[in-house]
Write a protein that binds this DNA or RNA. Structure first.
Lengths: 301, 301
DNA sequence: CAAACCGCTGCAAAAATTGCATCACACTAA
DNA sequence: TTAGTGTGATGCAATTTTTGCAGCGGTTTG
């Protein structure tokens, strides 16, 4: 859609903070870009950018305009989806901001399932923590956010909350593998590997141990769930994870045991979108699919 | 805003149903207009218009796009208002679709009051019946609708309902002028002038007399409230009107007497906007003003 | 003080838009 | 049937707009 070019350009300038740099990334001459901005400002009667010695910054009017621009760009995508929809072929792009736990099993499975039915739809998966996820929704980088506890975002419209009981991941030979459910104290008496990030599982554990004599003394810390999980199996130490991040069902190479909820309360994975936004068709349908997948497998609210 | 030109053009073509005719009204060559449309269609991959022997008509995709176009145009107005707002000067345009009764006193008073505070704001007042008012909201011709009973519009977002007791308008010498409140039967025993339209006051009266022995036999009918009112005073016959359509307070040349509510129930004037739309600043503020004016003078819900 | 960026402007080249004349088609009226 | 009228589409030239280059004036940085 050609008529949105100037708007896209403005967005790029706002993001990069410099006309010349934005021009480079847009594969256009900085002069042309500069003139487009001047034209819009003349049209509007107000400067969109403040000129600083090292570049530009959005003015108050620019902030308002940028909000409008993002709405328009997003809405145009949505309209394109609607139109593609009624001409039979389903096209579109779905962009997801999610936490790490969804990466290894859940999203690959769901996306390939969706793409089997609608090969024309493309996907973008971006690993984001909660605040970054919210920013991604606001800037329209992402259509859907899938984030773990705790959530308190003002611009997030909650669509579903999925209850996730913390589970210990063990090598089959690990002594704890014999028991059915584990107490946190038992786990912590063995060498343990934990995620670093102050979010998600680690956040729940910190909360759980704050008022007890238990101490979190991980022998391995990492911000990669993938690494923790592989390492736990290799070295036969314990790690903790939510079910969504683990292979579905039982596998011979890996044992999963729930942690008693008296020790660690269940966490929640939240599905959400930008408040007030109407999602493009593809995103909306995919969202419906994963929500029903969640509802089928886990307790949801 | 230049980038919306094509969208405005498409809207004009959709309205006029012919590229050539739209081109004329847009003061542009039909070739250029035609090509703009072709360009958008190529861009979108789908025809926006069906080509008929006598012109064009929106396709299904076109309907979707038009909806989007109207949203965008409206939103751009809103953004302009917001931006003008923070640069100090209040500019903007407020377009109102309303029933006749608001024309003689209420709107002139309110608009001039508002314009005294904000001379930069311009107004458009369009007389519309209920269905037309709804269409005006949808097409963004109007920002606000002020309509009389009965209302059952799916796209209207109700902001306020103003109770209006039906009143008889009399010459001071009229025999009924001596009484404080009137029964409908008394009024109908004198020559009476009534509005024609099946809406508003007439609708209430028809409902009221349907199940009684009373009969509406107006000696004068007109779709102009102005005429009815002038004529009633001239020929000294009775006419019925809602308070909003009458001069505020008592005047020596005219007597107002309420009709007993046992005979005719109170009507309602509704203030509304398009569902889900965020009004431009000027419209939003003016709306707040008239709503408080209503609330001050009449019983509102 | 020089170098590195920055946004901005004059000017010419390039690209897009527009207008004119005209075509093909469908309907209407004689 | 036939001539006439109104429709959207297209080739081509004129016009307008956009773009890119070179260079200016300013500020920060080393």
């Amino acid at each position: 859609m050609r008529h949105l070019t100037s708007l896209r350009y403005i967005e790029a300038v706002a993001k990069s903070g410099s006309i010349r740099r934005a021009a480079e990334s847009l594969a256009i001459n900085s002069t042309a870009l500069n003139r487009r901005i001047l034209a819009v400002e003349a049209d509007l009667g107000v400067p969109i950018f403040e000129r600083l010695p090292r570049g530009v910054r959005l003015s108050a009017a620019g902030e308002i305009l940028l909000q409008h621009i993002r709405d328009q760009l997003g809405d145009m995508d949505r309209v394109k989806g609607l139109i593609a929809d009624l001409s039979g072929e389903r096209r579109g792009h779905v962009s997801i901001a999610c936490s790490q736990a969804l990466l290894p099993y859940f999203l690959p499975e769901q996306i390939s399932l969706y793409r089997r039915a609608h090969p024309g739809v493309t996907f973008g998966v971006h690993v984001r923590d909660r605040d970054e996820a919210e920013q991604s929704l606001i800037s329209r980088e992402a259509d859907i956010a899938l984030v773990f506890e705790p959530v308190r975002m003002s611009d997030l419209e909650l669509l579903l909350a999925v209850r996730q009981r913390i589970e210990a991941v063990l090598h089959p030979d690990h002594p704890l593998a014999a028991k059915k459910t584990l107490r946190l104290r038992e786990c912590l008496s063995f060498p343990i590997a934990l995620p670093t990030a102050p979010y998600g599982v680690r956040h729940l554990l910190e909360n759980a141990t704050r008022r007890s004599s238990l101490k979190l003394t991980p022998v391995v810390e990492s911000d990669s769930f993938e690494f923790l999980y592989r390492h736990a199996l290799e070295e036969k130490i314990v790690t903790l994870q939510i079910p969504l991040g683990l292979p579905p069902g039982d596998t011979p190479a890996l044992v999963r045991r729930s942690i008693d909820t008296r020790d660690v309360p269940d966490g929640m994975v939240y599905v959400g979108q930008l408040k007030g936004r109407i999602l493009p068709v593809a995103a909306s349908r995919f969202c419906a699919q994963i929500m029903s997948a969640f509802a089928e497998r886990y307790e949801c609210i």
